[in-house]
Amino acid sequence: MIARLHILVLAALATSLTACATQDRTATAEAIAATAGLRRMVIATGPFDLTAYVRVRDPAQPMVVYVEGDGAAWRSRSEPSLDPTPRYPMGLRLAVLDRSPNVAYLARPCQYSWGSACKMAYWTDRRFAEEVITATSTGLDRIKTTGRLHLVGYSGGAAVALLMATRRSDILSLRSVAGNLDSEGINRHHGVSAMPGSLNPIDVAPRLAHLPQTHLVGGDDKVVPPLIAEGFIARLGEARCASIIRIPKASHDDGWESVWPVPIPSCRNP
């Protein structure tokens, strides 16, 4: 009985600490978003509530949507965190630098907004699962102002953006920053286990060859090395619409704000 009580107390303490951490990280996100006039909204998508920050100045123009990375998904190489909400939301930091009239930021499931569907698997081995991509695509439908979108994905958010783009007809362009364009390739590179519950963007690369796309890679990125983007471009088959920009001194989570935004990509003439 005492042991059970001890477990319940520890569980309650962990829940309390997680809630406090989320509140602190939400306050950080609010402060960042406010610098560019982005306002918070929470989108109910069925299994997940997604947090978004949105600014609309000209509803007739396309919207640029930034998809956040994996956030604080892991405490160590082998230990998942209790809360994936990012401490340093790079996707949001890039969004506030964008002077486009319509800009939106989409957090990933269970970042900032918690719900009954938030199981640890959704920020570990199922972070690119079918239900995650479907829910995030629903989020896009709720925030878009016109029929056209430009997508930007940071880190794991790039995988989500690319996977969404294969099933939508309203995407004008893709940009990735330190993008996870091949989740299984990255796992092999780091010697970690595969994610059978997740989809892998490189598997659908040929279906994206027609979309203008730019992939930014960091010369000092030890998490997603440049070879990942190179392999993805090779898998496209036709690379007329794709390019890689190498930022020599950028690491996975540093060096991007100083070069952002990069121009919206376009396809080269044949």
Rank of each mutant, 00 (worst) to 15 (best):
S113F: 06
R168F: 04
C267K: 11
A129W: 10
D58E: 03
R93I: 06
D254T: 13
D125Y: 15
R240G: 03
P196Y: 07
K222G: 12
P226L: 00
A14P: 08
T51Y: 03
D220H: 09
E184T: 11
R142T: 13
C110T: 02
R93Q: 12
V56F: 08
I244A: 04
L172P: 02
G37R: 05
V9C: 13
F48S: 03
L10I: 05
I2L: 12
E130G: 15
R127S: 03
R126N: 09
V64P: 04
G71S: 09
V262W: 03
V217I: 10
L94T: 04
K119H: 15
G237T: 00
A239N: 08
E184A: 12
H189N: 12
V65N: 01
V204C: 04
F232M: 02
P47R: 02
T214C: 07
A31G: 06
L163C: 03
A161V: 08
S116L: 15
P206L: 02
Q61I: 04
P89F: 08
S81V: 01
A95S: 06
N180K: 11
R39L: 10
Y122W: 01
E130W: 15
T28W: 10
V67P: 03
R55Y: 12
S183Q: 12
P47K: 06
P265L: 03
G37M: 05
T35V: 15
C20I: 14
V132H: 02
I32G: 09
L140K: 00
R207V: 07
Y66E: 08
A27H: 12
A95L: 04
P261V: 05
Y154H: 13
T22K: 09
R240Q: 06
Y122D: 00
G46R: 08
N200E: 13
V152Y: 00
P212E: 02
G179P: 01
A72P: 07
T145P: 11
T145L: 12
S176L: 04
